[in-house]
Nucleic acid binder design. Structure first.
Lengths: 114, 114
DNA sequence: TCAACTGTTCGGAATTATGGAACTATTGAA
DNA sequence: TTCAATAGTTCCATAATTCCGAACAGTTGA
């Protein structure tokens, strides 16, 4: 399900992050400390449910995030500590780049007004 | 051919680096300041020529490296400055992770004894 | 002139991505 | 309890990528 910290592969992680939608998911997740539900995270991204499910699976299997059932939702959290321990500075560099140049994320980021 | 610095996309770069062979190519390239030929870089990696060509194309189109004809070779160089300017710390974090845990690169790295 | 070398392109087979539809499980309300 | 709504997954078919062998083009050195 979730790979152990020692089993994280850099190529897998980079591959998982090498998709605009998944990259966006990670930046959204990075903004919340206690996680969020899949559905809320992808709100505003124009992606079919089946595809959402696929993207979260890729991120989970790469070890980028953890998913924990919470009622009828899946609480999704970034595996910050594991990533930092294994690939120091990587996540920060990526998040910082996204923050500095938001146009890096080529998405119609119509965030539903909560 | 080669994307301009301002056109580099983080997702594209991460995608390009999210493959064991391409990641290995980049670490090899990082070790040489003045570049190298495709053929020499992939020496020891068990990949068909057509696939090599494909991998270099992906790296080139993502803006990770530059290719410059040099006689009957292609001189390949890492676009360190462009990557650093656009995504500060990213390349260093990746290279450092590869260096720290060489097993990250799941390749039979039989480097031909020069 | 021509064979060897370096790399690209073409064609097909295998893998992966995407989305619609049907499904499971949980919740909250009647 | 019953049932509709919500949150995700799975199945299937289509589209796009990946990988390789083979044929190709350009450069070099004999």
């Amino acid at each position: 399900m979730h790979p152990a910290r020692a089993d994280l592969s850099l190529a897998n992680v980079l591959y998982a992050l090498g998709d605009p939608i998944r990259l966006k998911v990670v930046t959204e997740l990075a903004a919340t400390e206690e996680g969020d539900s899949c559905q809320h995270i992808v709100a505003g991204m124009n992606v079919a449910k089946a595809t959402q499910s696929h993207h979260f699976k890729v991120l989970r299997e790469a070890g980028v995030l953890r998913m924990e059932p919470q009622g009828r939702r899946l609480l999704v959290r970034l595996r910050r500590d594991d990533l930092e321990a294994r690939f120091p500075g990587l996540l920060d560099a990526i998040l910082h780049s996204c923050q500095k140049n938001p146009e890096i994320l080529p998405l119609t980021n119509e965030k539903a007004p909560v």
